[in-house]
Design a protein around this nucleic acid. Structure first.
Length: 294
DNA sequence: AAGAACTCCTGTTGGC
DNA sequence: TGCCAACAGGAGTTCT
């Protein structure tokens, strides 16, 4: 489900109920998600304190006082629900959800020392969790080849140009590749390419000159990626704030997309007369305007 | 060996 | 209304 802005929003929502708190009780309701849950999962968590909660790419990382790190990936449909001691619930995910309404896909439940009950729900079970000593994290297959954080300084036009150099794949696949830029997904790749006026079909190495130097297209793309992610995070944050005083429903993803999900509708580029088209690339829907994205 | 296709799983949606 | 194919914010594995 979530891309970087959604994962970051979930992290921010979880932080106050996890960071500095202990796992008083951990319920594991099935042996696996996408992969088997870690060995002795419950025993290694119970009694441990979360020292801090970080995000890397689309992973949420809980650093524990045992020296281990709990990593959580939400896959396509993973979500966390926080139930506060008073009984009202807060959902960090896509859909409105009344806590307790349907526990069919509630797979892991954390009861924290602050009193919050944090439930991981994942219908498709494409999400996963791992638990390992902090030192092993950088060598772990999930993290080792991960590309740069798009909101950090490492993402710049020269980096993109260098990584794109010689790559014959198209820009859509290039940007979806977590080894290049970590955290983008189908929606934000479509949105960033639209903002940069670049066709998803353009060959990736067109971002670089023959000398491997960045092109104006690479510069535009970097700016577009940063801005769309920053705006989305800001929107997620404000939604969460509103929610705290709300009654139990959360319209979480209210961000307005320029192309994603807008097949057949007019392109929003000022002065452009094109329509948004949808096509399938690598089994995923790509939305783009053929007129202003070249 | 890069690049594309296939796969895991369940739920929702839209067309007939 | 029912049925069924298509599709869904991901990414590891297996192919060509």
């Amino acid at each position: 489900m979530p891309e970087l802005p959604e994962v970051e929003t979930v992290r921010r929502g979880l932080e106050p109920v996890l960071a500095g708190k202990r796992f008083n009780k951990v319920e594991q309701r099935r042996p696996d998600l996408r992969f088997p849950l870690p060995e002795r999962f419950v025993a290694r968590l119970e009694g441990r304190k979360v020292e801090r909660l970080e995000r890397r790419a689309k992973y949420i990382l809980a650093h524990l006082d045992s020296g281990e790190v709990l990593t959580m990936h939400l896959g396509m449909t993973g979500r966390f629900t926080i139930t506060k001691p008073k009984g009202n619930s807060q959902q960090l995910g896509e859909f409105t959800y009344e806590h307790g309404a349907d526990a069919t896909h509630d797979h892991v439940v954390f009861t924290m020392s602050g009193g919050a009950i944090v439930t991981y729900n994942d219908a498709r079970r494409f999400g996963y969790m791992t638990l390992m000593p902090e030192a092993e994290l950088i060598e772990h297959p999930h993290f080792k080849g991960l590309g740069v954080e798009p909101l950090g300084n490492e993402l710049n036009a020269d980096y993109l140009a260098r990584r794109a150099s010689g790559k014959k794949t198209d820009l859509k696949a290039f940007l979806m590749d977590q080894r290049i830029v970590a955290g983008l997904g189908n929606i934000y790749v479509c949105e960033a390419l639209w903002r940069a006026h670049l066709s998803p079909d353009r060959v990736a190495h067109a971002l670089a000159t023959r000398m491997g130097k960045a092109t104006p297209a690479a510069e535009r793309l970097v700016g577009a990626i940063r801005r769309v992610l920053e705006e989305a995070i800001a929107a997620g944050g404000s939604t969460l704030r509103d929610y705290k005083q709300a009654d139990g429903s959360l319209g979480y993803f209210q961000h307005r997309f320029a192309v994603y999900g807008r097949e057949g509708e007019p392109c929003l580029t000022p002065g452009c007369r094109g329509k948004v088209r949808r096509k399938t690339q690598a089994g995923r829907s790509t939305f783009a305007c053929r007129v202003c994205q070249r």
